Simulated assay, not measured.
Amino acid sequence: MTSSPFRLARLPSPPVPLPRVPGPRLAPFTPSAQADIEFIEFLGRKNDKDSLVWKVTINGAGPFALKVFFFRHWDFLRENQAGDLATPLANPQLYVDYFDPFNCECRAYGRLKAEKREDLAVKAHGYILLTPQQEAGLVQRVTGRSTPPPSADAHNLDGVNFWGRHEQHRGLPVRAIVKDLAAGTGPNPAQAQGMWLDLQALHSLGIFVIDTHLGNYMGGKLVDFSRAWTTYHPALDEIYVRTFQDLLLGELQSLLDYYYELTNTSGGSIAVPEDLEALCSGHLDQYQNFPTAYDWLKWEMNADVAAAYVEQKVFKRAA
């Protein structure tokens, strides 16, 4: 007898803040998580693997930037995003809850909202779930082909489709996050100086950005948290110390490389932060703002229950 395939949890109706695990969450943009969307202009990069970004109006307001996410198989996330875990997670759903790019962004932006520090990145307003008609219309805009969402009796979904749907995603709506429309320009000297200060502040709030290359900044502000680990996060709990240090150094080095480029293109008017350069030159032990030090339980309505969930439900422990 063949067992039924694993499927991700259905999203609740009415919508709730996501993802549904202990830690920060992002609320829907509207009470129904749906809206009238006019897709105006594609803003992203053609080689983006996680999402499409469009200039839109929503319910007649805006313009906004709408980041629309592709689906990722849980096993892909386990191998490519969570490969450094010292202990595997207890079930496939958890890999999606903690490592899926949409959920990573929800958690980072949820923390910024809770801490009233939305100034540290381009502001996000909430998430939206596309209707089947909006999903099909957007595919038509991008590909020129009419590709309706799969029906309940459609053939097996193997990921070879526009949104990357596998069988585990059957029936799930396409997800998107509404953000401010950022100016697509390089930073001026004042904005550039703030990038390093912002990153340190993000770390102090338990947000490990990981991906700090120049393509993730606009006007000196981060616009992308699709790889971020935000406490509580199992990767910040069960990762080898050396691996974490290497990832942190890589994050800092990416920002430092961006500063070097800005210095060259600005004729020296944008300075490279000396302390960032020192950290990347072998003094990482002097860094103070480790994301793992953040007290995430202070936001939980029942801290004991949240702590017990992490201890008992997240990891696949040996019997």
Results as ranks from 00 to 15, higher is better:
Ser4Cys: 04
Pro5Ala: 11
Pro5Val: 13
Arg10Leu: 12
Pro12Ala: 13
Val16Cys: 12
Val16Asp: 08
Pro17Leu: 06
Pro19Phe: 10
Arg20Ala: 15
Pro22Gln: 11
Pro22Ile: 10
Phe29Ala: 12
Phe29Glu: 03
Thr30Tyr: 03
Thr30Trp: 03
Glu41Lys: 15
Gly44Tyr: 04
Lys46Glu: 15
Val53Ala: 15
Ala61Leu: 11
Gly62His: 08
Leu66Ser: 06
Lys67Asp: 02
Arg72Gln: 14
Ala82Thr: 09
Asp84Cys: 10
Leu85Gly: 01
Ala86Asp: 12
Ala86Ile: 09
Leu89Val: 00
Ala90Leu: 14
Gln93His: 09
Leu94Tyr: 07
Asp97Phe: 07
Tyr98Glu: 13
Phe99Ser: 00
Asn103Gly: 03
Cys104Met: 10
Cys106Asp: 02
Cys106Phe: 02
Cys106Pro: 02
Ala108Pro: 06
Ala108His: 05
Tyr109Arg: 14
Gly110Pro: 06
Glu115His: 06
Lys116Pro: 01
Asp119Thr: 12
Asp119Ser: 14
Lys123Arg: 15
Tyr127Gly: 03
Tyr127Thr: 03
Leu129Ala: 11
Gln133Leu: 13
Gln134Arg: 05
Glu135His: 12
Ala136Ile: 01
Leu138Pro: 00
Arg141Gln: 15
Thr147Cys: 02
Ala152Val: 12
Gly159Ala: 02
Gly159Gln: 01
Val160Glu: 07
Trp163Glu: 02
Gly164Tyr: 04
His169Gly: 05
His169Ser: 07
Gly171Met: 05
Val174Thr: 15
Ile177Lys: 04
Ala182Leu: 08
Gly186Asn: 11
Pro189Asp: 10
Ala190Glu: 13
Ala190Lys: 09
Ala192Trp: 01
Gln193Cys: 03
Gly194Thr: 09
Leu199Tyr: 05
Ala201Phe: 03
His203Gly: 15
Ser204Glu: 14
Ser204Leu: 09
Val209Thr: 14
His213Ile: 10
Gly219Cys: 10
Gly219Pro: 05
Gly220Ala: 09
Gly220Ser: 09
Ser226Met: 04
Ala228Gln: 04
Trp229Asn: 06
Thr230Ala: 11
Tyr232Pro: 15
His233Tyr: 00
Pro234His: 01
Ala235Leu: 14
Glu238Val: 01
Gln245Cys: 11
Leu247His: 12
Leu248Val: 14
Leu252Glu: 08
Gln253Pro: 00
Gln253Trp: 03
Asp257Cys: 04
Leu262Ser: 07
Thr265Phe: 06
Ser269Glu: 05
Ala271His: 09
Glu274Arg: 08
Ala278Arg: 13
Leu284Tyr: 09
Gln286Asp: 13
Tyr287Ile: 11
Tyr287Asn: 08
Pro291Arg: 04
Pro291Ile: 06
Thr292Ile: 12
Ala293Asn: 11
Ala293Tyr: 06
Asp295Ser: 11
Met301Leu: 14
Asn302Pro: 00
Asp304Gly: 03
Ala306Cys: 03
Glu311Arg: 15
Gln312Gly: 04
Arg317Lys: 15
Arg317Val: 02
